[in-house]
Design a protein around this nucleic acid. Structure first.
Length: 308
RNA sequence: GGCGCUUUAGCUCAGUCGGUAGAGCAAGGGACUGAAAAUCCCUGUGUCCCCAGUUCGAUUCUGGGAGGCGCCA
Protein backbone atom coordinates (compact mmCIF):
# COMPACT_ATOMS: atom_id res chain seq x y z
CA UNK A 1 0.00 0.00 0.00
CA UNK A 2 1.31 3.38 -0.97
CA UNK A 3 1.60 6.27 1.39
CA UNK A 4 -1.81 7.75 1.96
CA UNK A 5 -2.52 11.07 0.33
CA UNK A 6 -4.60 14.01 1.49
CA UNK A 7 -5.66 17.14 -0.36
CA UNK A 8 -4.64 20.34 1.38
CA UNK A 9 -6.72 23.13 -0.15
CA UNK A 10 -5.50 26.58 0.83
CA UNK A 11 -5.97 30.20 -0.20
CA UNK A 12 -6.94 33.58 1.16
CA UNK A 13 -10.32 34.31 2.65
CA UNK A 14 -13.17 34.67 0.14
CA UNK A 15 -11.21 33.15 -2.72
CA UNK A 16 -13.77 30.36 -3.09
CA UNK A 17 -12.39 27.35 -1.25
CA UNK A 18 -15.69 25.99 0.03
CA UNK A 19 -17.17 25.14 -3.33
CA UNK A 20 -14.05 23.27 -4.36
CA UNK A 21 -13.85 21.37 -1.11
CA UNK A 22 -17.37 20.04 -1.63
CA UNK A 23 -16.82 19.03 -5.22
CA UNK A 24 -13.49 17.38 -4.45
CA UNK A 25 -14.97 15.46 -1.56
CA UNK A 26 -17.78 14.25 -3.79
CA UNK A 27 -15.56 13.27 -6.67
CA UNK A 28 -12.80 11.63 -4.65
CA UNK A 29 -15.00 10.05 -2.04
CA UNK A 30 -13.69 12.23 0.73
CA UNK A 31 -14.64 14.27 3.74
CA UNK A 32 -13.81 17.85 4.55
CA UNK A 33 -11.36 18.50 7.35
CA UNK A 34 -11.73 22.19 8.09
CA UNK A 35 -8.54 24.00 8.89
CA UNK A 36 -9.99 27.28 10.03
CA UNK A 37 -9.20 28.61 13.47
CA UNK A 38 -12.55 30.39 13.85
CA UNK A 39 -15.02 28.01 12.29
CA UNK A 40 -14.31 25.63 15.13
CA UNK A 41 -16.52 27.80 17.30
CA UNK A 42 -20.25 27.35 17.56
CA UNK A 43 -22.52 30.39 17.19
CA UNK A 44 -19.97 32.12 14.99
CA UNK A 45 -21.28 31.32 11.56
CA UNK A 46 -22.06 34.41 9.56
CA UNK A 47 -18.87 36.24 10.49
CA UNK A 48 -16.65 33.25 9.76
CA UNK A 49 -18.41 32.38 6.50
CA UNK A 50 -18.97 28.80 7.51
CA UNK A 51 -20.32 26.47 4.85
CA UNK A 52 -24.11 26.67 4.72
CA UNK A 53 -26.26 23.94 6.25
CA UNK A 54 -27.11 22.36 2.92
CA UNK A 55 -23.45 22.39 1.98
CA UNK A 56 -22.51 20.63 5.19
CA UNK A 57 -25.11 17.99 4.39
CA UNK A 58 -23.60 17.21 1.03
CA UNK A 59 -20.37 15.98 2.59
CA UNK A 60 -19.26 15.19 6.16
CA UNK A 61 -17.34 18.06 7.76
CA UNK A 62 -14.90 17.94 10.64
CA UNK A 63 -13.65 20.65 13.01
CA UNK A 64 -16.59 22.94 12.52
CA UNK A 65 -18.67 23.78 15.60
CA UNK A 66 -16.55 21.78 18.01
CA UNK A 67 -16.08 24.40 20.75
CA UNK A 68 -17.93 27.21 22.45
CA UNK A 69 -16.36 30.64 22.08
CA UNK A 70 -15.22 30.65 25.69
CA UNK A 71 -13.37 27.37 25.31
CA UNK A 72 -9.69 27.55 24.65
CA UNK A 73 -8.38 26.06 21.48
CA UNK A 74 -5.01 26.15 19.81
CA UNK A 75 -2.98 25.08 16.83
CA UNK A 76 -1.27 22.35 18.81
CA UNK A 77 -4.52 20.84 19.92
CA UNK A 78 -5.89 21.08 16.43
CA UNK A 79 -2.82 19.43 15.00
CA UNK A 80 -3.17 16.36 17.20
CA UNK A 81 -6.92 16.05 16.80
CA UNK A 82 -6.79 16.59 13.07
CA UNK A 83 -4.10 13.94 12.67
CA UNK A 84 -6.30 11.50 14.51
CA UNK A 85 -9.18 12.50 12.29
CA UNK A 86 -7.13 11.99 9.15
CA UNK A 87 -6.04 8.57 10.39
CA UNK A 88 -9.66 7.62 10.99
CA UNK A 89 -10.58 8.73 7.49
CA UNK A 90 -7.86 6.55 6.01
CA UNK A 91 -9.27 3.62 8.00
CA UNK A 92 -12.55 4.08 6.18
CA UNK A 93 -10.85 4.73 2.85
CA UNK A 94 -12.13 8.30 2.74
CA UNK A 95 -9.88 10.97 1.25
CA UNK A 96 -9.20 13.85 3.62
CA UNK A 97 -9.94 17.18 1.96
CA UNK A 98 -8.18 19.56 4.35
CA UNK A 99 -9.58 23.00 3.61
CA UNK A 100 -8.95 26.29 5.30
CA UNK A 101 -7.06 29.51 5.55
CA UNK A 102 -5.30 29.12 8.88
CA UNK A 103 -1.74 28.46 7.82
CA UNK A 104 -0.50 27.75 11.29
CA UNK A 105 -3.19 25.13 11.84
CA UNK A 106 -2.29 23.47 8.56
CA UNK A 107 1.34 23.45 9.56
CA UNK A 108 0.45 21.88 12.89
CA UNK A 109 -1.49 19.16 11.09
CA UNK A 110 0.85 18.45 8.21
CA UNK A 111 4.29 19.13 9.62
CA UNK A 112 3.71 19.02 13.35
CA UNK A 113 4.94 21.42 15.99
CA UNK A 114 8.25 20.95 17.67
CA UNK A 115 7.37 22.72 20.87
CA UNK A 116 6.32 20.60 23.82
CA UNK A 117 2.72 19.57 23.93
CA UNK A 118 1.71 21.82 26.70
CA UNK A 119 0.44 25.18 27.60
CA UNK A 120 -0.69 26.66 30.86
CA UNK A 121 -2.99 29.67 30.91
CA UNK A 122 -1.96 30.48 34.47
CA UNK A 123 1.69 30.75 33.56
CA UNK A 124 0.83 32.93 30.59
CA UNK A 125 -1.31 35.13 32.79
CA UNK A 126 1.51 35.49 35.27
CA UNK A 127 3.77 37.00 32.62
CA UNK A 128 1.04 39.16 31.18
CA UNK A 129 0.48 40.59 34.60
CA UNK A 130 4.19 41.15 34.90
CA UNK A 131 4.06 43.21 31.72
CA UNK A 132 1.25 45.29 33.13
CA UNK A 133 2.94 45.90 36.46
CA UNK A 134 6.60 46.10 35.55
CA UNK A 135 6.59 46.76 31.86
CA UNK A 136 7.88 45.08 28.74
CA UNK A 137 11.52 45.65 29.53
CA UNK A 138 11.36 43.67 32.77
CA UNK A 139 9.81 40.71 30.98
CA UNK A 140 12.33 40.89 28.17
CA UNK A 141 15.08 40.91 30.76
CA UNK A 142 13.60 37.78 32.32
CA UNK A 143 13.67 36.10 28.93
CA UNK A 144 17.25 37.17 28.28
CA UNK A 145 18.29 35.36 31.44
CA UNK A 146 16.72 32.02 30.60
CA UNK A 147 16.69 32.07 26.81
CA UNK A 148 19.01 34.67 25.30
CA UNK A 149 18.66 33.13 21.86
CA UNK A 150 14.93 33.75 21.75
CA UNK A 151 15.31 37.16 23.35
CA UNK A 152 17.62 38.11 20.52
CA UNK A 153 15.43 36.60 17.82
CA UNK A 154 12.05 37.95 18.90
CA UNK A 155 11.12 41.56 18.30
CA UNK A 156 10.88 43.39 21.65
CA UNK A 157 7.33 44.47 20.85
CA UNK A 158 6.06 41.01 20.02
CA UNK A 159 5.06 40.25 23.58
CA UNK A 160 2.79 37.41 22.58
CA UNK A 161 5.81 35.37 21.49
CA UNK A 162 7.96 36.59 24.34
CA UNK A 163 5.35 35.35 26.80
CA UNK A 164 5.13 32.02 25.01
CA UNK A 165 8.90 31.58 25.19
CA UNK A 166 8.83 32.26 28.93
CA UNK A 167 5.92 29.88 29.35
CA UNK A 168 7.80 27.06 27.67
CA UNK A 169 10.81 27.66 29.86
CA UNK A 170 8.73 27.76 33.04
CA UNK A 171 6.94 24.56 32.13
CA UNK A 172 9.85 22.49 30.87
CA UNK A 173 13.01 24.12 32.17
CA UNK A 174 14.28 24.21 28.62
CA UNK A 175 14.32 27.24 26.30
CA UNK A 176 12.02 27.18 23.30
CA UNK A 177 15.02 27.96 21.13
CA UNK A 178 16.33 24.48 22.01
CA UNK A 179 13.12 22.86 20.83
CA UNK A 180 13.42 24.75 17.59
CA UNK A 181 16.48 22.70 16.75
CA UNK A 182 14.59 19.44 17.03
CA UNK A 183 13.67 17.43 14.00
CA UNK A 184 10.24 17.84 12.60
CA UNK A 185 7.89 14.96 13.11
CA UNK A 186 7.85 12.70 10.08
CA UNK A 187 4.71 13.12 8.05
CA UNK A 188 2.02 10.52 8.47
CA UNK A 189 0.65 11.06 5.01
CA UNK A 190 1.51 12.73 1.77
CA UNK A 191 -0.01 16.20 1.46
CA UNK A 192 -1.08 17.36 -1.97
CA UNK A 193 -1.17 21.13 -1.66
CA UNK A 194 -3.54 23.09 -3.86
CA UNK A 195 -3.60 26.88 -3.60
CA UNK A 196 -6.44 28.95 -4.98
CA UNK A 197 -5.76 32.53 -5.94
CA UNK A 198 -7.22 35.42 -7.87
CA UNK A 199 -6.08 38.83 -8.97
CA UNK A 200 -5.58 40.90 -5.81
CA UNK A 201 -7.97 43.63 -6.87
CA UNK A 202 -10.71 41.17 -7.71
CA UNK A 203 -10.13 39.24 -4.50
CA UNK A 204 -10.61 42.48 -2.59
CA UNK A 205 -13.82 43.15 -4.50
CA UNK A 206 -15.07 39.75 -3.40
CA UNK A 207 -14.10 40.42 0.19
CA UNK A 208 -15.88 43.78 0.23
CA UNK A 209 -18.96 42.23 -1.29
CA UNK A 210 -18.96 39.37 1.16
CA UNK A 211 -18.82 41.75 4.09
CA UNK A 212 -21.91 43.53 2.78
CA UNK A 213 -23.63 40.16 2.53
CA UNK A 214 -22.66 39.26 6.08
CA UNK A 215 -24.30 42.44 7.30
CA UNK A 216 -27.43 41.62 5.31
CA UNK A 217 -27.50 38.09 6.64
CA UNK A 218 -27.54 39.39 10.19
CA UNK A 219 -24.00 39.63 11.50
CA UNK A 220 -25.15 42.17 14.08
CA UNK A 221 -27.81 39.79 15.38
CA UNK A 222 -25.27 37.03 15.58
CA UNK A 223 -23.05 39.20 17.76
CA UNK A 224 -26.03 40.21 19.94
CA UNK A 225 -26.77 36.55 20.52
CA UNK A 226 -23.17 35.95 21.53
CA UNK A 227 -23.44 38.87 23.96
CA UNK A 228 -26.63 37.44 25.42
CA UNK A 229 -24.78 34.24 26.14
CA UNK A 230 -22.29 36.28 28.09
CA UNK A 231 -19.46 36.21 25.59
CA UNK A 232 -17.66 39.43 24.87
CA UNK A 233 -14.83 40.91 22.84
CA UNK A 234 -12.19 39.89 25.36
CA UNK A 235 -12.49 36.22 24.41
CA UNK A 236 -9.85 34.99 22.03
CA UNK A 237 -12.44 33.39 19.82
CA UNK A 238 -14.05 36.76 19.37
CA UNK A 239 -10.84 38.56 18.66
CA UNK A 240 -11.79 38.06 15.08
CA UNK A 241 -12.32 40.30 12.12
CA UNK A 242 -16.00 41.09 11.87
CA UNK A 243 -16.72 40.54 15.55
CA UNK A 244 -14.39 43.07 17.18
CA UNK A 245 -15.71 45.84 14.96
CA UNK A 246 -19.34 45.01 15.70
CA UNK A 247 -18.62 45.03 19.43
CA UNK A 248 -16.99 48.43 19.02
CA UNK A 249 -20.07 49.63 17.20
CA UNK A 250 -22.32 48.39 20.01
CA UNK A 251 -20.16 50.23 22.51
CA UNK A 252 -20.56 53.41 20.50
CA UNK A 253 -16.94 53.55 19.44
CA UNK A 254 -17.78 53.19 15.76
CA UNK A 255 -20.53 54.51 13.54
CA UNK A 256 -22.31 51.88 11.47
CA UNK A 257 -20.57 52.90 8.25
CA UNK A 258 -17.18 53.10 9.92
CA UNK A 259 -17.73 49.61 11.28
CA UNK A 260 -18.41 48.21 7.82
CA UNK A 261 -15.40 50.00 6.36
CA UNK A 262 -13.15 48.59 9.05
CA UNK A 263 -14.44 45.05 8.67
CA UNK A 264 -13.65 45.28 4.98
CA UNK A 265 -10.21 46.73 5.52
CA UNK A 266 -9.28 44.25 8.23
CA UNK A 267 -10.51 41.37 6.08
CA UNK A 268 -8.34 42.59 3.23
CA UNK A 269 -5.33 42.78 5.52
CA UNK A 270 -6.09 39.32 6.80
CA UNK A 271 -6.11 38.01 3.24
CA UNK A 272 -2.77 39.70 2.62
CA UNK A 273 -1.24 38.01 5.66
CA UNK A 274 -2.57 34.66 4.51
CA UNK A 275 -0.98 35.19 1.12
CA UNK A 276 2.34 36.06 2.75
CA UNK A 277 2.16 32.84 4.72
CA UNK A 278 1.24 30.55 1.84
CA UNK A 279 3.56 32.18 -0.68
CA UNK A 280 6.63 30.72 0.93
CA UNK A 281 5.39 27.14 0.88
CA UNK A 282 6.95 25.61 -2.22
CA UNK A 283 4.74 22.55 -2.06
CA UNK A 284 1.64 24.44 -3.14
CA UNK A 285 0.31 24.02 -6.68
CA UNK A 286 -1.32 27.37 -7.42
CA UNK A 287 -4.40 27.77 -9.59
CA UNK A 288 -5.64 31.17 -10.73
CA UNK A 289 -9.43 31.20 -10.56
CA UNK A 290 -9.55 34.35 -12.63
CA UNK A 291 -8.23 32.37 -15.58
CA UNK A 292 -9.83 29.00 -15.01
CA UNK A 293 -13.46 28.00 -14.90
CA UNK A 294 -14.53 26.00 -11.88
CA UNK A 295 -14.70 22.84 -13.94
CA UNK A 296 -11.29 23.22 -15.53
CA UNK A 297 -9.72 24.17 -12.20
CA UNK A 298 -11.26 21.03 -10.78
CA UNK A 299 -9.81 18.99 -13.62
CA UNK A 300 -6.42 20.47 -12.91
CA UNK A 301 -6.66 19.56 -9.27
CA UNK A 302 -7.59 15.98 -10.09
CA UNK A 303 -4.64 15.75 -12.46
CA UNK A 304 -2.30 16.98 -9.78
CA UNK A 305 -3.86 14.52 -7.39
CA UNK A 306 -3.39 11.57 -9.71
CA UNK A 307 0.17 12.58 -10.51
CA UNK A 308 1.16 12.85 -6.88
C1' G B 1 -19.88 85.20 -20.86
C1' G B 2 -17.30 87.95 -16.37
C1' C B 3 -14.73 87.55 -11.66
C1' G B 4 -12.47 84.69 -7.79
C1' C B 5 -10.45 80.13 -5.98
C1' U B 6 -8.31 75.51 -7.35
C1' U B 7 -5.24 71.33 -9.97
C1' U B 8 0.95 67.82 -5.97
C1' A B 9 0.89 59.87 -4.14
C1' G B 10 -4.84 55.47 -5.08
C1' C B 11 -7.87 59.38 -1.74
C1' U B 12 -7.89 64.06 1.33
C1' C B 13 -4.31 67.62 1.53
C1' A B 14 0.52 70.19 3.22
C1' G B 15 4.98 72.26 1.14
C1' U B 16 9.21 74.17 -1.56
C1' C B 17 11.17 82.97 -0.11
C1' G B 18 13.41 78.80 -7.42
C1' G B 19 17.92 73.54 -6.18
C1' U B 20 12.72 67.59 -8.87
C1' A B 21 8.57 66.95 -2.54
C1' G B 22 5.75 64.88 2.60
C1' A B 23 1.63 63.87 6.20
C1' G B 24 -2.91 61.08 7.35
C1' C B 25 -5.78 57.30 5.34
C1' A B 26 -5.64 53.48 1.66
C1' A B 27 -1.89 50.20 -0.18
C1' G B 28 2.62 47.01 -0.69
C1' G B 29 6.45 43.67 1.51
C1' G B 30 7.91 40.49 5.54
C1' A B 31 8.12 37.52 10.18
C1' C B 32 5.53 33.71 12.48
C1' U B 33 6.21 26.52 15.93
C1' G B 34 0.17 25.82 21.29
C1' A B 35 -3.88 33.31 21.28
C1' A B 36 -2.60 32.54 14.44
C1' A B 37 -9.02 36.01 11.45
C1' A B 38 -3.96 36.55 16.75
C1' U B 39 0.75 39.11 17.45
C1' C B 40 4.73 41.91 15.46
C1' C B 41 8.27 44.49 11.92
C1' C B 42 9.53 47.30 7.44
C1' U B 43 8.16 50.50 3.11
C1' G B 44 6.26 56.68 -0.02
C1' U B 45 4.64 54.06 -4.60
C1' G B 46 4.87 60.89 -7.88
C1' U B 47 5.25 63.58 -15.91
C1' C B 48 3.94 68.25 -8.62
C1' C B 49 -2.57 69.29 -15.10
C1' C B 50 -0.46 70.80 -20.22
C1' C B 51 2.48 74.26 -23.41
C1' A B 52 5.71 78.24 -23.75
C1' G B 53 8.76 82.23 -21.31
C1' U B 54 12.42 84.04 -17.60
C1' U B 55 16.58 81.38 -15.23
C1' C B 56 22.65 77.80 -14.62
C1' G B 57 18.16 75.37 -12.79
C1' A B 58 10.84 75.85 -12.72
C1' U B 59 6.46 71.68 -9.17
C1' U B 60 7.38 76.79 -7.27
C1' C B 61 7.74 83.00 -10.85
C1' U B 62 5.24 85.06 -15.65
C1' G B 63 1.93 84.30 -19.93
C1' G B 64 -1.39 81.14 -22.50
C1' G B 65 -4.37 76.69 -22.58
C1' A B 66 -7.42 72.67 -20.19
C1' G B 67 -10.25 70.48 -16.04
C1' G B 68 -12.87 71.36 -11.30
C1' C B 69 -15.49 74.51 -7.57
C1' G B 70 -17.99 79.04 -6.23
C1' C B 71 -20.22 83.81 -7.06
C1' C B 72 -22.24 87.26 -10.63
C1' A B 73 -24.69 87.39 -15.12
Amino acid sequence: MNVRKAIILVGPTAVGKTEFSLQLAEQLGGEVVSSDSRQVYRYMSIGTAKPARDEMLRVPHHFIDIRDPDQFYSAGEYGREARACVRALFERNAVPIVTGGSGFYIQALVDGLFAPQMSDPDVKEKWRQCIREQGQEAVLEALRKVDPVSAERLHPNDMQRVVRALEVYDLTGKPISEYRKGDEAPGEFEPVFIGLQRDRKLLYDRINLRVDLMIQEGLLDEVRDLEKKGWGPELNALKTVGYQEVFDHFEGKLEFDEMIGLIKRNSRRYAKRQLTWFRKDQRIHWLDLEQLSVSSALENILEIWDAS
